[in-house]
Design a protein around this nucleic acid. Structure first.
Length: 359
DNA sequence: CCTGCCGGGAC
DNA sequence: GTCCCGGCAGG
C-alpha cells in the first residue's frame, strides 16, 4: 500500500507519532541551508512538533513590512518543516485581556534588534528565529482542537490541520502549541527567556547552557529509532547504522538520500559521564520529563528524608495494594466467553486487568 | 459458582 | 520482555 505516501503526507501535514522525535535533525538541516550571519546553531532536541494551528505573524515592535516578510518566511520555513509557529512566537495578543504568563515576548522584537534591514534579510531573520525557537519553551498544549481565531489579527491557516490519516492516532504527548490557559495552569513551567542572554549563555528551560561546548563534552549521535537508542560517536557511523539496521539498505550505499538524518540526533555528552557508561545518555525530554505541577502542600519546603522503612520483622508482608474495585464493565471473558478466548484482549488472556473494556 | 485480576513463575 | 496460571476477593 502507499505506506510511503502516507508517511510523506503526514510529514507535510504535520508530524505525528514516531515521526515526531525526528524533528530536531530536520530543523538542523534547514538551519544549515540558511545564511546565518554569525548566529549560533539551534539547540537540538528542543522541538516536539505537533501541528495544531498556525497564525499569522503580527509584527510588533514597529518592524513594518520587513517584519511581515519575516513572518511569512518563518511560516514558510516551519511549514516546510511540518511545524507550526506557536502563537507566542508571533507576538499576538497584545490587546487581549490580562497579562500573558511569561515567556511570550515576541521574537520579532528580538530579531529586529539583532539585525539591520538588508536585502535577503528575511532568511537571516528566519534563521534567527529558528535559533530563538530552539531555545524557546516547549509548551504542552491542548489537543489540536480548533484554535480560537484572534480578533483583530489575521489568522493564517498555513498548514492544513492534520489530515485524518495522520490524526487518527493523535495523542497528547507531543502537542506543541501555545495555550495561554494551560500555561496559566502550570505555574511551575519555567518561563524561559528568549534566545540570547546578555552574558552569552543560552537558556534552555531555565538552565543556563554554556554557549561554547566545554572541553569535557563530546558530540555523540543518538539513534532515535524506536527502542534502539544506539549512541555512536560519528555521524557517518550513525547513518550507516540507520541505513543498515533500520532502513534495510546497504551499508555502502554511495549516495544516500539523507533519510538517515531524520532518525538520529546529536547529543552533547559529558565525557566524564561516559566513563560511567552510556545509560545516562537519554536526552532529557522537555515535555515528558517535566513533572506534573502538583502544588501540593509538600511541593515546597525541605525535601523529606529518604523514607527509611522501620526495621521490619522478618515474616511481615507489606500492606497489600488495595485491590481495584470491580468495575461495571463487562470484560473480555464475559463478552466473548470462554469459547472465544482468542478474541480476548491480551491482558484478559493472561488473567490481567482488562485493557479493552476499561472501567 | 462466576468473574476479574494480583502475584508470581516459566521461558 | 511475553506468556501462563494459582489463588484470592467480590458479587
Amino acid at each position: 500500500m502507499g505506506q510511503e505516501e502516507t508517511a510523506s503526507s503526514c510529514t507535510r501535514a504535520g508530524l505525528d507519532g514516531d515521526e515526531e522525535q525526528f524533528l530536531p535533525q530536520r530543523v538542523l538541516r534547514h538551519w544549515n541551508r540558511l545564511p546565518r550571519a554569525g548566529l549560533e546553531s539551534p539547540t537540538l532536541g528542543m522541538f516536539t512538533p505537533r501541528v495544531a494551528e498556525a497564525s499569522v505573524p503580527r509584527v510588533s515592535g514597529g518592524l513594518g513590512s520587513a517584519g511581515e516578510r519575516l513572518g511569512l518566511m518563518i511560516l514558510k520555513v516551519f511549514s516546510s518543516l511540518g511545524v507550526l509557529v506557536p502563537r507566542w512566537v508571533v507576538g499576538r495578543d497584545e490587546g487581549s485581556q490580562g497579562p500573558r504568563p511569561s515567556p511570550p515576548q515576541p521574537l520579532f522584537a528580538l530579531v529586529g534588534r539583532k539585525l539591520s534591514g538588508k536585502a535577503g534579510i528575511d532568511e537571516v531573520m528566519a534563521a534567527a528565529v529558528l535559533t530563538s525557537l530552539s531555545t524557546s519553551p516547549l509548551v504542552l498544549g491542548h489537543p489540536p482542537a480548533a484554535p480560537a481565531p484572534e480578533p483583530g489579527g489575521e489568522v493564517w491557516k498555513e498548514a492544513p490541520t492534520m489530515s485524518s490519516s495522520c490524526s487518527s492516532s493523535s495523542n497528547t504527548s507531543g502537542d506543541w502549541s501555545w495555550d495561554p490557559a494551560s500555561d496559566r495552569s502550570t505555574p511551575s513551567t519555567p518561563s524561559p527567556p528568549l534566545s540570547s542572554h546578555p552574558d552569552g549563555t543560552h537558556f534552555v528551560f531555565g538552565e543556563p547552557v554554556p554557549r561554547k561546548r566545554k572541553n569535557s563534552t563530546k558530540v555523540m549521535f543518538k539513534c532515535l529509532w524506536k527502542s534502539c537508542g544506539k549512541v555512536l560517536s560519528s555521524s557517518s557511523g550513525m547513518q550507516k547504522h540507520i541505513r543498515t539496521a533500520h532502513l534495510g539498505r546497504k551499508a555502502d550505499l554511495e549516495q544516500s538520500d539523507g533519510e538517515e538524518d531524520f532518525y538520529y540526533t546529536e547529543l552533547d555528552v559529558d565525557v566524564e559521564s561516559l566513563t560511567d557508561g552510556l545509560s545516562s545518555l537519554t536526552p532529557v525530554s522537555p515535555t515528558s520529563s517535566v513533572p506534573p505541577a502538583f502544588p501540593g502542600p509538600e511541593a515546597q519546603g525541605p525535601v523529606p528524608p529518604v523514607p527509611l522503612p522501620t526495621p521490619a520483622p522478618p515474616p511481615p508482608k507489606p500492606p497489600a495494594v488495595p485491590r481495584r474495585p470491580r468495575g461495571e464493565a463487562k470484560k473480555c471473558r464475559k463478552v466473548y466467553g470462554m469459547e472465544n478466548r482468542e478474541l480476548w484482549c491480551t491482558a484478559c488472556r493472561w488473567k490481567k486487568a482488562c485493557q479493552r473494556f476499561l472501567d
